[in-house]
Amino acid sequence: MDLYKLLFSTNVMLVEGISEELLIKSYLREYSNYLNNIEVLSFHKGYNKIIDLWMKINSHGKRKIAVVRDYDNQPNAKEQTESRSIPGKVFVGTTEGYTLEDDIVNGNIDLLRSYFIDHLNWDIELSATASEIANVWKSKKGETMAMIACEFGTEQFHNFSLPNHINNAIKFLKGEPI
């Protein structure tokens, strides 16, 4: 079924894993009426081959694909995947930091610091840096993202900001300027 969605959906977003999928689907559910128009699918690797296959089938239609990937300190992989970007057809967004958690914390440090201390009882200092918080999060990856995803739409997460690469992917699929 995912293969069918990948190749034939109007707007497809490929993500690295469950954390990205939870984040994006929950965010779209709460803050956008575009969820039914964007298929979010998890693929951990193989983006270049997937984009190439997708283009063979969809090069002449109106369908779009966005890839949301981690940098992982792999500049060559980043360059190879981003070179497949095609305006209006293929968008590739890569984290600025090592992983998704780094980018989320950097954009939401005060909100997350208090949330992790007050609601998840993390043993971190009020002065913890973004890097320190992200490193703790990486050891509790899926569980933490599930908790955050449940908080969307609440006052606690009213000012939450998506990382730039995800925000730009959503804008691309919606046809908005990036």
Score class of each variant (00 low, 15 high):
N36P: 04
C150V: 09
S83W: 04
S131R: 05
I86R: 14
N33Y: 14
K171H: 02
I117W: 03
L112A: 02
I18N: 05
M147E: 15
A149Q: 09
T154M: 12
L3Q: 04
I65C: 11
E101A: 05
K45V: 12
L14D: 04
T10P: 07
L120R: 14
S127R: 10
Y27V: 02
F160G: 04
M147L: 04
N164M: 08
G142V: 09
K64E: 03
T129H: 04
E96W: 12
I133C: 01
D118M: 10
M1N: 08
A134G: 03
A146H: 14
N164F: 00
N76K: 15
A77V: 13
I18Y: 01
N33A: 03
N106F: 13
Q156K: 14
K89T: 12
F91G: 07
C150E: 02
K138G: 02
M55Q: 15
V40K: 00
Y4K: 11
K64A: 01
H60L: 15
N11L: 00
Y71L: 14
S127Y: 10
L14Q: 07
V105T: 06
T10A: 07
Y47K: 12
K64R: 15
E101S: 08
I50G: 10
K45S: 15
M13Y: 04
E155I: 12
Y71P: 00
L173W: 03
D118Y: 08
L173Q: 07
W54A: 05
V15E: 02
I133T: 00
T95A: 12
T10Q: 12
P75K: 02
N108W: 02
I166C: 00
S83F: 09
F172S: 05
I38A: 06
I178M: 05
S9L: 06
Q80T: 13
N167Q: 15
Y27I: 06
K56N: 14
E96G: 10
K25L: 00
G17R: 09
N167H: 03
I104N: 01
W137K: 01
K25I: 08
I86E: 00
N108K: 12
E16R: 10
R69Q: 12
K138H: 00
Q156V: 14
S161E: 08
H158N: 13
S26V: 01
S139G: 03
N167G: 07
L7D: 09
N164P: 07
N121C: 11
Q156G: 02
S26K: 00
F43V: 08
T95M: 11
F157S: 09
W137C: 06
S59P: 00
T10N: 13
G93I: 06
Y115D: 04
N168S: 14
K78W: 01
F157Q: 09
N73Y: 15
N135Q: 11
I24Y: 07
S161N: 12
M13K: 04
F157C: 09
N164C: 08
G46W: 09
H158E: 13
V15I: 13
F8V: 05
S161V: 05
E176Y: 06
E176C: 00
C150D: 11
K89H: 12
E79R: 15
Q80A: 13
A149D: 06
D52Y: 12
M55I: 06
K140V: 01
G17D: 11
P177E: 10
D102Y: 14
L126Q: 01
S131N: 15
E20N: 02
S114G: 03
R63S: 13
L162C: 03
